[in-house]
């Protein structure tokens, strides 16, 4: 069907020669304009991570570089002082990594099993259970800040990465369960029925049938969770402080700290360190992400 649309619908190579050229100019012109607009922040920040500070202060961010140096990357990574801590962003980068990876793995694993149980092993009130879990998707973080602060304190994990892993895992399960349940609903029930007649139990069906079918939704969950948790700011700021903060909080502290001159070039390099991991995940997995998202994860 999609093919039919595209055969009937190809204005760039139908009509007269002049008309073709005109529509091509409009389409590619607009696309280029928007592409430049979308890419410009990325260009600007990369260039300024190489420029000396005096030059940035003198000419602003949007200017061709005269002299360039690699040294700001090293400074940003390992020696620059943020809030009295002179280890650069490396420490905060590692904090975020130690928070994001376990929370992503845990919430995705729970989501897969939950989604499978809710879609293929119907029981009384299963819709209520699903509804309760997915309400977590909508609940604004502000409603949970004070209770979480209390609970984390009671558990003895205030101001630790472990505490943030807990918060992100529990919040993330709502998303992953929603994604996986909606995806697994489309798996034919006959497949499960046949396996059960053959004597396969809950876990055997999960490992042998559902898991091999799940890569598309697995990728959606991993990308969603990884980018979401890596980029999260509010929980990190509220529940941790000082050298235990994630990198997003460190970037904001960077802007606020520093008496006297702002080290824009080091800041630009730090910002790239903060942006790079989710960006790489996206560039390499984005295609599957969109495919999974549009194939029914979002409903």
């Amino acid at each position: 069907m999609a093919e039919a649309v595209h055969q009937a619908f190809d204005p760039l190579s139908t009509g007269s020669r002049a008309k073709q050229i005109r529509s091509k100019t409009i389409v590619y012109g607009l696309l280029t304009f928007f592409a430049l607009l979308y890419m410009s922040p990325l260009f600007i920040i990369f260039i300024n991570a190489y420029r000396p500070l005096e030059e940035i202060v003198r000419e602003g961010f949007i200017s061709a570089p005269n002299t360039m140096s690699w040294s700001y990357w090293g400074e940003a990574w390992s020696t620059f002082c943020i809030g009295g801590n002179c280890e650069g962003v490396s420490r905060y980068f590692v904090n975020t990594l130690l928070m994001t990876v376990p929370a992503t793995v845990l919430s995705t694993a729970f989501g897969l099993v939950n989604g499978y149980a809710l879609s293929k092993w119907r029981f009384k009130y299963d819709a209520w259970v699903f509804g309760l879990i997915t309400l977590g998707v909508f609940l604004p973080a502000q409603m949970t800040l004070l209770p979480w602060a209390f609970v984390l304190g009671k558990l003895g994990v205030s101001n630790t990465i472990g505490g943030l892993v807990l918060v992100h895992t529990i919040q993330g399960i709502s998303f992953t369960t929603l994604f996986c349940r909606n995806y697994f609903v489309a798996v034919p029930d006959d497949l499960i029925k046949a396996a059960r007649i053959d004597g396969a139990g809950f876990w055997r069906i999960f490992w042998r049938i559902m898991l091999p079918l799940s890569p598309p939704i697995l990728i959606v969950c991993v990308i969603w969770q990884f980018t979401g948790i890596w980029n999260e700011f509010l929980y990190g700021t509220v529940f941790t402080s000082g050298s235990n903060q994630p990198i997003t909080s460190a970037i904001v502290a960077f802007s606020g700290s520093g008496t006297g001159e702002r080290h824009y070039n080091v800041e630009a390099a730090s910002v790239i360190f903060a942006a790079l991991p989710p960006l790489l995940v996206y560039v390499f997995g984005g295609k599957y992400f969109v495919r999974g998202l549009t194939s029914g994860a979002v409903k």
């Binding site: 949007i62 999260e232 942006a275 996206y282 984005g286």
Partner: peptide, 19 residues
């Protein structure tokens, strides 16, 4: 067109503030 979605609001806000 999709890559901004992968970038945190903190990074987005910082860069556009400079611009």
């Amino acid at each position: 067109f999709l890559y901004p979605l992968a970038i945190s609001f903190i990074v987005t806000g910082t860069v556009w503030r400079w611009i």
